[in-house]
Simulated scan of single mutants.
Amino acid sequence: MAKELRVELVAVEERIFTGTAELVTARTTEGELGVLPGHAPMLGQLAEPGQVRLKLAGGDTQVWNVTGGFISVTGEGVTVLAEECSPASAADRH
């Protein structure tokens, strides 16, 4: 079994996703960020508009449009705190 990250995706008023993922990608103000298990701790500001992509075990991918917020990577996993978050349509995915 591949190593996985514990992931929480939270919008201002609700928890959007809690679970595990093999890879988390997000666009920050410093550029595109890919987080795999064992990534160094960091804090980044999400770029606007942006997307957060979760590659789940088995190859499924979830894509979320996010507005504002931060991504935090710790030894415990990844937390994304967004001002707004909604599922991306197939046309939105890039």
Rank of each mutant, 00 (worst) to 15 (best):
A2R: 13
K3W: 14
E4W: 12
E4L: 15
E4M: 14
L5P: 05
R6K: 12
R6E: 11
V7C: 02
V10P: 04
V10N: 09
V10H: 03
A11L: 05
A11H: 08
E13D: 14
E14A: 13
R15V: 15
I16K: 01
I16T: 06
F17C: 07
F17D: 01
G19S: 03
G19C: 09
G19A: 00
G19T: 05
T20W: 02
T20F: 11
E22V: 08
E22F: 02
T25S: 09
A26M: 04
R27C: 10
R27S: 14
T28V: 09
T29K: 08
G31D: 01
E32D: 15
E32H: 13
V35S: 04
V35M: 07
V35K: 05
P37W: 06
G38L: 03
H39L: 00
P41H: 07
P41D: 04
M42L: 15
M42S: 10
L43W: 00
L43Q: 11
L43D: 01
G44Y: 01
G44C: 07
Q45H: 13
L46E: 05
A47G: 05
E48W: 13
E48R: 12
E48S: 13
P49K: 03
P49M: 01
G50N: 12
Q51A: 11
Q51R: 08
R53W: 07
R53T: 08
L54W: 02
L54Q: 03
K55S: 15
K55R: 15
A57E: 09
A57S: 11
A57N: 02
A57I: 06
G59S: 05
G59K: 07
D60L: 13
D60E: 14
D60A: 15
D60M: 10
T61R: 06
T61A: 12
Q62E: 15
V63A: 09
N65E: 06
N65G: 06
T67E: 15
T67N: 13
T67V: 14
G68K: 06
G68D: 02
G68Q: 05
G68E: 07
G69H: 00
F70G: 08
S72C: 12
V73M: 05
V73T: 07
V73D: 04
T74L: 04
T74Q: 05
T74C: 05
G75H: 05
G75I: 03
G75L: 08
G75Y: 07
G75T: 02
E76W: 05
T79A: 15
L81F: 11
A82T: 08
E84C: 10
E84A: 14
C85E: 03
S86P: 00
P87N: 10
P87I: 12
A88K: 10
A90P: 01
A91V: 13
D92K: 02
D92Y: 00
D92Q: 11
D92C: 04
R93G: 04
R93V: 09
R93W: 08
R93Y: 08
R93D: 01
H94P: 11
